[in-house]
Nucleic acid binder design. Structure first.
Length: 361
DNA sequence: AGAAATGATTAGCG
DNA sequence: CGCTAATCATTTCT
């Protein structure tokens, strides 16, 4: 019978109580379709054993009830046999009827148990229902990679593995700690899409991570800042028609915010090790940088700071791919080419334009 | 409570 | 098979 097989496969039926461990192991093995589900197993196991227990107790109850009922009927028949003759055949027939009734009830039990297991399984396997956000550190690592490879954010298999490992290591504090390669792939898929869809929204993040990866070489920065005033390294001028206006339109506001955030260190837990030096340099470069609530004519000041950063930090891969500072790898069609098409952008870039909802002013 | 963020899944494409 | 785009379901933020 199919239900029996099913239950057996799930480890619900099969070995009677006592052999639980092996049964559960079999069950988890059966459930473990993939390979990467050694997490949260305990939860599933607990639920499964619960189901198993219920199933067995119910089954036992039914059996007992069946026996009791048959003996009861037998007694009745025996009593009746005094008043009228009852053939053994008739008795057998009765017993059969009773047994059939009870077995049908058992079928129902099995079926509902099966259903419960299926539900449990689907719940368990459908990770969407058990989504855990990655830890701060993990997303940080992933973001770092993403923004430092913004021109081509497609990590190779090895890179994915490494990232997964790195995330797992830094996260090793408790639940949901292991991040698999496919999770890394998912993350990058989501990130690419979402970044592309609304670049403006990610501007702050992009700059933050760009700066972050950049500060790992603060000395170089300091050195670069001094003689970068007249250099122009940051725009390779590769026939790319990404107009700066696109960014300026939607980014001026963000720019100021993020700059404030970066340099005041007010954005959460982010701290910039060498920010003091950098800030000083920047301030000197553009003359007047007011820390907090700038009245926001923004453009000039933001631009100068932008250039200062772009020039001083332009060596890094991260900034090369950063839309604020240089043409990024996104083409108009939505592709992520770093080989740029000569001089024909067939469609205006939607992602950047669509951001400014208020065209007035 | 509702919106936003986010990880996972799915269909479709090359 | 890996990617994109759309979508789902859950978590986190407001």
């Amino acid at each position: 019978m199919r239900l029996d097989n099913m239950l057996l496969a799930e480890g619900v039926s099969g070995p009677e109580k006592g052999g639980g461990a092996s049964a559960v192991a079999a069950a988890t093995a059966a459930v473990g379709v993939g390979a990467d589900n050694s997490i949260e197993h305990s939860d599933y196991r607990a639920k499964l054993t619960q189901i198993r227990q219920i199933y067995h107790t119910e089954l036992e109850k039914y059996e007992q009830a069946c026996n009791e009922f048959t003996t009861h009927v037998m007694n009745l028949l025996r009593e009746q046999s005094r008043t009228r003759p009852i053939s053994p055949k008739e008795i057998e027939r009765m017993v059969n009827i009773i047994h059939r009734k009870f077995s049908s009830i058992q079928m129902q039990l099995k079926q509902s148990t099966c259903e419960a297991v299926m539900i449990l399984r689907s719940r368990f396997l459908d990770a969407r229902r058990k989504r855990r956000n990655f830890s701060k550190q993990a997303t940080e690592i992933l973001n770092e990679y993403f923004y430092s490879h913004l021109s081509n954010p497609y990590p190779s298999e090895e890179a994915k593995e490494e990232l997964a490992k790195k995330c797992a290591i830094t996260v090793s504090q408790g639940k949901g700690s292991t991040i698999t390669v496919s999770q890394v792939s998912n993350w990058f898929g989501n990130k690419r899409i979402r970044y592309k869809k609304n670049i403006g929204k990610f501007q702050e993040e992009a700059n933050l991570y760009a700066a972050k990866t950049a500060v790992t070489a603060t000395q170089a920065v300091a050195a670069a800042v001094h003689n970068s005033q007249t250099n122009s390294p940051a725009t390779p001028s590769s026939g790319f028609q990404m107009k700066d206006e696109d960014f300026q339109l939607d980014a001026t506001e963000d720019k100021n915010n993020l700059l404030n955030n970066i340099f005041t260190g007010s954005s959460g837990s982010y701290s910039l090790p060498g920010s003091g030096d950098m800030f000083m340099s920047m301030s000197n470069l553009n003359g007047s940088y007011q820390p907090a609530q700038v009245p926001v004519p923004g453009q000039t000041q933001g631009d100068s700071i932008r250039h200062a950063i772009g020039q001083s930090l332009g060596y890094s891969d991260g900034l090369r791919g950063n839309p604020l500072y240089s043409p990024h790898g996104l083409n108009g069609n939505g592709g992520w080419h770093d080989a740029v098409t000569p001089s024909s952008v067939t469609s205006p870039i939607e992602g950047a334009n669509s951001v400014h909802s208020d065209t007035s002013n």
